[in-house]
Design a protein around this nucleic acid. Structure first.
Lengths: 192, 192
DNA sequence: CTATAATAGCTAATATAATTAGCCTAAAAA
DNA sequence: TTTTTAGGCTAATTATATTAGCTATTATAG
């Protein structure tokens, strides 16, 4: 029976499985079962098999994240926009533990495609930073710093790697304020 | 023939394979071949098979990193010590791409053991932070911030995720200075 | 509206790696 | 020297990915 599957449906199901049942359950076997087909059928949609699917899952994740942070940045500016973006990033990672993990697999798929996938998110940062008085190099440093911090913090948090019982919200806030202060210091007057 | 293998030798070989041939080659098959035995023999050392081996590899990595940063922190204090620790962390990640990746797998092995493995590194940070005038909560925030940033930045860098050609050293330096400034601001007088 | 082609599913077969069972001998210990 | 244990092996099993080739449904061309 024709189930009318397509790449998007399949990828979304994979993302779901990753989040609900853990990334180790993202296999053609499980995926096919969830979709009501047999695993060889998936090759009709993903010629490259599991590898290609994982790559697409990664790209899908970065695009989803980009869309989230783009939305929250609308109508906000400066520190307010940055805080919103960062919280959106972190929330995404915590709400999509499995998908977020899949997104980190770019090691195997180090490619132009991946750079482009993250480029969307990077652009949002740059756009917001445009309203500060910073030169281009400074902006690059700042975006790199945010990306590094967000990815690391979210990853550690979502894996339960921060043992101390102290509030993670406060730590996250503290860190963002620290970086923002750093940005303000770079500007002649004060920004905010 | 008895090859005189033991857990340590095997784990070190696994780390080597991860770094030299990529983490996807850390399989019992490849590992056994490199060690000159057949793969079932490895179960004599790792009852839990590949899973247990991966877990031990992760722990081994964190312990190695702890040892590196402990060494570089000796004889240094304050900002100087922190900078040294951070550079040691980043160098480790870049020099041990595969192992560093394995270290991030604590998702599957979320355990008391893992918390303890990273605790070593955390302790070094706390010790250094003791010479600043900070209260305990502030120290926790700061350590979390460093851990998040270091893990994320190193991970992105070692996967070639930062597309822009601008110097990564400068970005890393910029970020560290920014965090250090944040610390100084928390202190009544100035620290350094 | 029919004939044809392409698509998306299926089953059966193959390949690769992990794992288990059970044997065997070198080394260690009694 | 005898016994035990540890660490290797081969053979068999299991699990999943993948390939090959068949078939029916859907879409398209005439």
């Amino acid at each position: 029976m024709k189930m009318g599957l397509n790449r998007t449906t399949i990828i979304e199901m994979a993302a779901n499985i990753a989040d609900e049942r853990g990334i180790s359950n993202v296999t053609l076997k499980v995926l096919a079962a969830e979709l009501g087909v047999k695993s060889p059928s998936l090759y009709k949609h993903f010629n490259g098999g599991l590898d290609e699917l994982n790559k697409e899952l990664m790209l899908y994740g970065w695009h989803s994240l980009e869309s989230k942070i783009t939305k929250v940045a609308i109508g906000r500016a400066k520190d307010d926009a940055i805080m919103a973006i960062c919280y959106a990033y972190r929330n995404f990672a915590v709400e999509h533990k499995g998908l977020f993990e899949a997104m980190q697999w770019y090691n195997m798929y180090q490619s132009e495609e991946h750079l482009q996938a993250t480029q969307g998110m990077v652009s949002v940062f740059f756009q917001v930073l445009d309203s500060y008085e910073l030169d281009e190099e400074q902006k690059v440093h700042i975006v790199r710093m945010f990306r590094g911090f967000l990815q690391g913090f979210s990853s550690i948090e979502s894996h339960g790697g921060y043992g101390n019982p102290l509030s993670l919200n406060e730590s996250f806030d503290f860190a963002l304020k620290t970086i923002l202060n750093g940005i303000h210091d770079l500007q002649g007057g004060m920004g905010k």
